[in-house]
Amino acid sequence: MTTPVSISLTVNGERVEAHVLPRLNLADFLREHLKLTGTHVGCEHGVCGACTVRVGGEIVRSCLMLAVQVNGAAIETIEGLSDSGEIADLQAAFRDRNALQCGFCTPGMLMAAQDLLRENGKPTREEIREHLSGNYCRCTGYHAIIDAVENAALARTEPQA
């Protein structure tokens, strides 16, 4: 039974059929099998948040899910959110505020930030800090990230003149 298991799912809206070993985690599946390398691997034990993706619309740590568990699920990665334009404004806010340096945490950080903004349109700085508290960034010191998310939230709630 350590033989490959067949799974069928959608990734960024595309249908994917695969045979995967049970031990393969979702992060490695996305990166190594589907070449979606925007999902990063920082710790492989669920602490750093770099591998955050959406499964069924909810953020999860992809290093803490097995590929076999996402059979039938809809996965969205940073590539999907970028191509669809869903987070274009958030990405622009990060760019304008230089809310990233090396960029390795950024895909996971954007996933978590978008998750917050979908459920709370007007988060306080404390709420932003709290929602992102499971995503490690060594470069920025977080201040710029908090600013960027706050700016994006404000822009979303204030309709363009």
Binding site: M1, P22, N25, H45, G46, R61, C63, L64, M65, L66
Partner: peptide, 25 residues
């Protein structure tokens, strides 16, 4: 295997190496 948020890190670190995972998801 329920949510896996304790089990999978332990498995990734090879602190536990079960022969079979029963996924109740």
């Amino acid at each position: 295997l329920s949510g896996g948020q304790s089990l999978i890190p332990a498995m990734n670190l090879r602190l536990v190496s079960p022969e079979l995972i029963v996924d109740i998801g």
